[in-house]
Each structure stands twice: as structure tokens, then as C-alpha cells.
Amino acid sequence: MTLMEITLQALDAAERAIPAGQPIFMLNLIRYRAQAHYEDGFDAAPCSGREAFDERYRPAFRRLAAGKPLVRVFSVPVLASLVGSPSERWDEVALNEYGDFATFRSIVDTETYRREVAPHRHAALEDFRLFAVAKAT
């Protein structure tokens, strides 16, 4: 399956749907590639998808998010699927908490993210889902 990008249209729609200033969680469902697959021209040593995500994508994302109100990141392995298609397999679930949607957008809607951070996510992941969800009150 081809990874889908976060589009400008998706960011705009989410921004309209989520009240300004509302704290949010970004729920990530993650499936890793056995071997990271970088696009031609991107210079990176061979590694597994999990290594590309943990050792390249996450540190690059944290550097880009430094100084922004990213409250915390919670990431755990998926042990079993109880409901869903047998072909739908997830390796990990990550929950990132942000002060608001504008903070998330200010990170991912940049040329620096597209050039220096996203290539590691693309190389690492076979598939993923991303949902903006409300922080429980």
C-alpha cells in the first residue's frame, strides 16, 4: 500500500473541525517495513523500518518540535487484534499530545519536515493511520 501524505486539504479540514486552542492527541497506527526503503537520492545507511522510525524519524521530529508545546509521546507495541480484518496488522500505537492542532500543523506543514523528517517516516512505514482526537476532560 502506498503511504498517504498529510495533505493541505486534510490539515485545513481538521483545523476547521477542531476548536482553536483545544488540546489534542494524534493517534498513530503504525506498521513497519522489514527493511527501510528510502527514495532514490536520499543518502541513508540500510536498516530496518523500526530502526529508521525509532533512530531517525523520531529524533528528527523531536528536533523540529523543540520549543513547541508537544506535551508528551506515548508509544506501545500492539500485542493482538481482537476486532478487525485479519489482514489489518499494526505493530505499534503511538499517542502524541499537543497543546492544540495549530502546534501539530506548525511542525508537519513545513518544508523542513517534508525535506528532513518525512523521508524517514516514508522509508520506515509499510502503512499507517493518523487521527486527531480530543483530549479527555
Rank of each mutant, 00 (worst) to 15 (best):
Y32F: 12
D127Y: 06
A44L: 03
A10I: 05
L70N: 06
Q35A: 10
V71G: 00
I30Q: 06
R56H: 09
V83C: 10
R62N: 12
V108M: 12
A14E: 11
Y38G: 04
C47K: 01
F61H: 04
V78F: 06
E5R: 15
F74I: 12
V93H: 06
T103K: 08
R16L: 09
L79A: 12
N96Q: 11
D43Y: 00
E97H: 11
R58M: 15
N28S: 01
R89P: 00
E5Q: 13
Y98W: 13
T112K: 03
V71C: 02
L64T: 10
R115Q: 14
R50V: 01
S85A: 14
A60T: 02
Y57M: 03
A94M: 14
P119D: 11
V108T: 15
G84V: 09
G49V: 02
S85F: 05
A45E: 13
P46K: 08
M26T: 08
P77V: 06
R89I: 14
V93R: 04
V83I: 15
P69D: 15
F53P: 00
R115L: 08
P119R: 09
M4H: 14
D109Q: 14
I24K: 00
R50I: 00
S106Q: 14
S87V: 11
S85K: 13
T2N: 15
H122W: 11
E15D: 15
P119I: 06
L130K: 08
L79P: 00
D127L: 06
Q9V: 10
A20N: 07
E126V: 02
A45G: 06
R121M: 11
F131Q: 03
D127R: 15
E97A: 14
F131I: 03
